[in-house]
């Protein structure tokens, strides 16, 4: 019985761990995007876009630390979006 219960719990946990994109994943991705933008020289070549991304990342961290993960996710997504915009501007795609 214990074995079956353990199996069920582990299956449930396993399923849930792959079901959603977690806030941590989004925050990590946002941080990586901003880092890439920084290393490409976006703070000087596309400052508006870069600093917008940085501020959204700051908001994402703040909201996540206050357990408002939905707002954290939203801000992290925006941070990624603006970091990509900064890169696009820096490489003359805009």
């Amino acid at each position: 019985m214990r074995f079956v219960l353990g199996l069920v719990i582990s299956v449930v946990l396993y399923t849930f761990s792959f079901a959603e994109t977690t806030t941590t994943e989004l925050l990590d991705e946002a941080q990586n995007s901003i880092k890439a933008a920084f290393e490409s020289g976006c703070p000087t070549l596309a400052p508006y876009e870069y600093y917008k991304a940085e501020t959204y990342y700051y908001i994402a961290r703040e909201e996540t630390s206050k357990l408002n993960t939905k707002a954290g996710n939203a801000a992290a997504m925006k941070a990624i979006e603006w970091a990509l915009k900064a890169m696009a501007k820096r490489y003359g795609e805009e």
């Binding site: 994109t21 508006y48 600093y51 501020t55 925006k78």
Partner: peptide, 24 residues
């Protein structure tokens, strides 16, 4: 002042309530 105005706009956007497309 690109950095200052970008920060101000992002904070105002957050006050209004952020919307995003849920990847899942």
């Amino acid at each position: 002042a690109p950095s200052e105005i970008a920060k101000a706009e992002a904070f105002i956007d957050a006050i209004d309530g952020l919307s995003y497309i849920n990847p899942d």
